[in-house]
């Protein structure tokens, strides 16, 4: 049983998940741009001995490119899941790697959520809740909505009766 589990190839998320995370990241970065723009304008207008233009803005651009372009791809690359016969395994992160297994028999309830951007790409997030204090919710974004529903039904058939 062990080796089927550890060696099982992880299922990748839907490629559109990268687009969704990029759009969400862009929205955040644009919101974050406001103080940067104000700082830039203030420092160029406020003083004739101003630093060259872009001294605030260019670091922000580099950060934004990293967060919007590079990070989603990287995170997508290291994310994966595996639906076993009796358990779900969710793996994420490289620098801070985490590998979680939740047996179906311990799942209390299941959510399938869809954000507005996810909906455009027909994606959804599956969240399973356990009774444990640690890892009481484990979520898996970037699933096709149909797949998420199918997974939910699959898990649900294992939960005979909700207890606790």
């Amino acid at each position: 049983m062990e080796d089927t589990e550890e060696s099982a190839a992880l299922t990748k998320l839907h490629p559109d998940h990268v687009k969704v995370t990029r759009i969400v990241a862009s929205i955040w970065m644009l919101l974050l741009a406001i103080p940067f723009v104000i700082a830039e304008v203030a420092q160029t207008l406020g003083d004739e001995r101003a630093l060259p233009m872009g001294v605030v803005f260019i670091p922000w651009m580099i950060l934004a490119i990293f967060i919007v372009y590079r990070l989603p791809l990287r995170r997508y690359h290291f994310r994966g899941f595996d639906m076993g016969a009796d358990r779900i395994r969710i793996v994420r992160g490289y620098l801070f790697h985490s590998d979680t297994i939740v047996p179906f028999g311990r799942i209390q309830h299941i959510d399938v959520d869809q954000g507005p951007i996810q909906r455009r790409y027909n994606l959804a997030t599956l969240t399973v809740h356990t009774a444990g204090n640690h890892n009481s919710t484990v979520s898996l974004p970037g699933l096709l909505h149909e797949d998420a529903i199918a997974m939910r039904e699959e898990i649900r058939s294992h939960i005979r009766r909700e207890s606790l």
């Binding site: 620098l95 801070f96 790697h97 985490s98 590998d99 979680t100 297994i101 939740v102 047996p103 311990r106 356990t130 009774a131 444990g132 640690h134 890892n135 009481s136 484990v138």
Partner: peptide, 10 residues
């Protein structure tokens, strides 16, 4: 046990 997680920092 409800869930098991293995974590690794850099």
């Amino acid at each position: 046990i409800q869930s098991v997680e293995i974590k690794q920092g850099p």
